[in-house]
């Protein structure tokens, strides 16, 4: 048996950036649950992960911004620091078969060390909001009007209640785009909103605001929300991160 000294977690050689879904049952995981789930999957995959220093080393990883519990995602990003530079295929093969339902490996790239971190790159995120059909059956125009109203507004005051108290802020400058998606009789809204250091929008806040303006009562069934993509900003334009 090979003996690893506890104080030598291994210098990272490469960073593996993976893109995972968080759908189905996995959407109910909190961000902390999700972090733990990825750590455990990485351990099951037996990847050569670099560990943090200290008495209780754990895998060196960083995550894209937290997702509210219940919101799904097709684009959760995780950077995993590795002690070796394995092939992308190898990582995908090992990780692909040890993920729980709802967490699917979408893609993965191996990056050289020293690149910018996820948190420093992310500027925006897109979401799709599906309004329950029976709430607005045959009336996409109501939603469309609500969207237009939102985009025209100078300010969209939002209050968020946390254990520390209630905070008011203006949502409007953080909303970059809202579009109605038609098709298959479903009524969905595509939204592009701020994410990352300059401000972070909770998609459920926007969905609630649309629902309110569309006159859907508080008893209406909640919308299904899916995070679709993270964006970086380059040359004044948003481009998908991975």
């Amino acid at each position: 048996m090979e003996r690893n000294a506890p104080s030598s977690p291994g210098k990272p050689q490469a960073t593996c950036r993976i893109r995972l879904t968080k759908t189905g049952p996995a959407r109910f995981m909190s961000h902390l649950d999700f972090i733990r789930a990825v750590e455990r999957a990485v351990r099951r995959a037996d990847l050569p992960v670099a560990l943090t220093e200290g008495f209780h080393p754990h895998p060196r990883m960083s995550f894209s911004p937290a997702l509210p519990v219940g919101v799904e995602s097709e684009c959760e990003l995780v950077d995993v620091d590795l002690r070796e530079s394995p092939s992308v295929d190898e990582v995908a093969r090992r990780l692909g078969c040890v993920l729980p339902p709802g967490m699917r490996l979408v893609s993965c790239v191996v990056l050289p060390r020293g690149g910018p971190s996820l948190s420093s790159m992310i500027r925006a995120a897109s979401y799709q909001v599906d309004f329950a059909r029976d709430n607005i059956a045959g009336r996409p125009d109501v939603i469309e009007a609500a969207i237009e109203g939102l985009l025209r507004a100078d300010a969209i005051p939002i209050s968020r209640t946390t254990p520390k108290g209630t905070r008011e802020f203006n949502l409007r400058p953080l909303i970059y785009d809202l579009r109605l998606l038609r098709g298959n009789g479903a009524v969905s809204v595509h939204m592009l909103v701020a994410a990352g250091p300059r401000g972070h929008v909770r998609p459920d806040d926007v969905a609630r605001e649309i629902a309110r303006r569309a006159g859907l009562g508080p008893g209406a069934r909640p919308a299904r929300i899916v995070r679709k993509e993270f964006y970086v900003e380059r040359d004044g334009r948003f481009r998908p991160l991975l």
Binding site: P25, A26, G70, G102, P222
Partner: peptide, 13 residues
């Protein structure tokens, strides 16, 4: 709408 919904779903590893 309930607290900690992850405890009521299937599909754990």
């Amino acid at each position: 709408v309930v607290e900690r919904p992850a405890r009521y779903v299937n599909g754990e590893w």
